[in-house]
Design a protein around this nucleic acid. Structure first.
Length: 354
DNA sequence: TTCCGGGTTT
DNA sequence: AAACCCGGAA
């Protein structure tokens, strides 16, 4: 079982996959356009990391309007880039994309590099994204193993292990290599990812309509439920957090977070993770004295990150001494914030309207 | 309210 | 192996 090794059988399978894709692929704004701008593809693939199509789409379109080419983006500031990324999540991707644009300008003459090894050297471009760009923009025979394709590959080839692990993805890449050598690698990647998304689903896959079922190890061995499964169970611990709302003349004080931490580099009301510690003892964390009104919270917001959950209680507070504004602190209009913020910050600031 | 999906970096 | 976000479905 598994992919055939005979070139002619492989060609037939290749043909069947592309035929399936031609018939079932979802229409997307960029699909169907020949020789697409590799930069646009790069932007899109990075935005689509960990992000749904429907969420990323408006960001993608605004992005290309604002920075139509690599050189335009290379000129942007981190502040502008974070602002355009606002709400998309995983904000390091925005910084990496900016660094990538600058690297392409400085080291590749402004052209997205064509070789897999060069692509993988770009910040934010890992094995998946490099292969996606190399295959779709430059027709290189590189399997782009995302979560969907890892599942398809694990089932077809009967590969045991965590479907999310690097080890399994590497194995899938190796095993699927030969079929990519038959050509049309970009289209083949799209086909396999689409197949994983629409047919070879984690639960109750539609094996009866799958073009790969005749060669699928999992299907033929009745092991579809065992292979291509993600059994990891990361614990989402919950943390009590206090956000301080300091208001003055209709404006609210926001703080620029440390670039390396959670929501790094984004602005928002100061928040402190404190477990059960009362917020009065938290004031020393701020560079100025405050008086916190603990009698009645302005509101509560729950926010889930990849690895933890915050239960945020927003308390009104007043500064007791001069607040020095600048790189780290700013007064903003909560209805019209002009610094980059996250979805969490937007919701906390939204408590003030509603 | 909980569950779930989705790549790269360190 | 852990850190990093958000929103849509169940």
């Amino acid at each position: 079982m598994g992919l055939p090794s005979d070139p002619e059988a492989l060609d037939r399978l290749h043909e069947r996959l592309l035929g399936w894709f031609a018939e079932h692929r979802r229409e997307l704004p960029w699909r169907g356009s020949e020789d697409e701008d590799p930069y646009a593809l790069l932007v899109r693939e990075i935005m689509l990391q960990q992000t749904r199509m429907s969420t990323a789409l408006p960001y993608y379109e605004r992005w290309l309007e604002r920075w139509p080419g690599v050189e335009d983006l290379a000129e942007a500031s981190e502040e502008e880039v974070l602002d355009a990324w606002q709400g998309l999540g995983y904000y390091n991707r925005a910084r990496w994309l900016l660094r990538t644009a600058r690297k392409i300008r400085d080291e590749h003459g402004g052209e997205v590099p064509r070789r897999l090894s060069q692509l993988e050297q770009l910040p934010g471009v890992g094995p998946y994204t490099a292969a996606a760009i190399a295959s779709m923009a430059f027709d290189k025979p590189a399997p782009a193993v995302d979560g969907n394709m890892a599942r398809v590959g694990a089932r077809v080839e009967g590969i045991e292990g965590e479907v999310t692990s690097d080890k399994l993805k590497r194995e899938v890449r190796t095993r699927l290599g030969p079929v990519f050598e038959r050509g049309r690698a970009g289209r083949l990647n799209e086909a396999l990812m689409e197949l994983g998304s629409l047919v070879c689903t984690p639960v109750d896959p539609a094996c009866e309509v799958c073009p790969l079922s005749p060669v699928c190890t999992a299907y033929q061995g009745a092991r579809v439920d065992e292979l291509g499964i993600d059994r990891s169970t990361p614990d989402l611990s919950t943390h009590a957090v206090t956000a301080l709302i300091l208001a003055r003349n209709g404006q609210v004080l926001v703080h620029r977070r440390d670039p390396d931490g959670l929501l790094g580099g984004l602005w928002g009301p100061p928040v402190i993770e404190h477990g059960d510690t009362p917020p009065a003892t938290l004031a020393p964390d701020l560079p100025f004295a405050v008086e916190v009104d603990e009698t009645e919270p302005i509101g509560r917001v729950e926010h889930t990150f990849s690895h933890k959950r915050w239960q945020v209680r927003a308390l009104a507070a007043e500064p007791r001494e001069e607040v020095v504004t600048g790189e780290a602190w700013q007064w903003v209009d909560p209805a019209d914030v002009d610094v980059p913020t996250s979805a969490l910050d937007d919701r906390v600031l939204g408590l003030l309207d509603g």
